[in-house]
């Protein structure tokens, strides 16, 4: 589970577990997959894991859902078990099930990149990725790019250059710019603009996003 102290709010999953009574969520169709008999006895751990199971190997198919399924997500270097319906997007799983609310859902259609996370180091829109498609991959969120208490150079540069106003696009912007510097440590301003071409900022903070990222590239270079 995610590390949270007891006074932190409960995730929907914990709520669902905690609550009882007639209105509880139906657990119908928990797992229809071959080789799985009871909820929680087996975890979807990625293609490699399930293809090793006998029956799945024979048919090459395993079915999940439509009800909640326990899966293991590898987020920010830690394994988390979440119980989700297959329709759950990665953004929803992060925010609701894992309480990692730094990732924002803005357009919910892949148009604004407010939900940007890294999937094996590649920036993607987590609102358009099924959480189950992240199984077996390394997910990095805004919560996971700093080194302990030390902010990522892009985060530090965003603060230094005031590259934010309301801050709602900021996690997505930071993720896009950090990914850019990861693959291109010496970008031009045009490179930065292209890297955040899908990131919408309604406050209009772009000029400082460009400046901050170029500055962060400088500090990365000197490091």
């Amino acid at each position: 589970m995610s590390e949270r102290s007891k006074d932190q709010p409960m995730s929907a999953e914990e709520q669902a577990k905690a609550s009882s009574g007639r209105n509880g969520i139906s657990r119908r169709g928990f797992l229809k997959g071959a080789g799985l008999t009871a909820a929680g006895t087996a975890l979807l751990e990625g293609v490699q894991a399930f293809s090793s199971e006998t029956e799945a190997k024979e048919t090459g198919v395993r079915e999940f859902g439509p009800g909640p399924v326990p899966v293991r997500l590898h987020v920010n270097g830690t394994e988390h078990t979440v119980t989700i319906e297959p329709r759950t997007t990665l953004a929803e799983a992060l925010r609701i099930n894992l309480g990692m609310t730094g990732t924002k859902i803005v357009c919910d259609r892949g148009s604004c990149s407010g939900c940007t996370v890294l999937l094996d180091k590649v920036p993607v829109n987590s609102c358009m990725v099924l959480a189950m498609d992240a199984v077996g991959h390394h997910v990095t969120t805004i919560e996971g790019i700093s080194q302990g208490s030390e902010p990522h150079p892009v985060q530090a540069a965003f603060v230094k250059h005031d590259a934010m106003q309301c801050g709602y696009c900021t996690p997505g912007m930071v993720m896009s710019c950090a990914a850019l510097l990861d693959r291109n440590p010496h970008p031009t301003e045009q490179d930065v603009r292209q890297a955040v071409a899908g990131n919408l900022c309604r406050c209009g903070t772009y000029p400082k996003v460009f400046a901050a990222t170029l500055d962060a590239a400088g500090s990365t270079r000197n490091a």
């Binding site: 905690a18 609701i96 990732t103 859902i105 902010p151 965003f158």
Partner: peptide
């Protein structure tokens, strides 16, 4: 700034309460 750049800033849409 640090709270916003780190994703720690808690907006209304981020609030989760027990039993919500």
């Amino acid at each position: 700034g640090p709270a916003k750049a780190s994703g720690r800033a808690r907006y209304t849409s981020d609030v989760q309460l027990p039993g919500m």
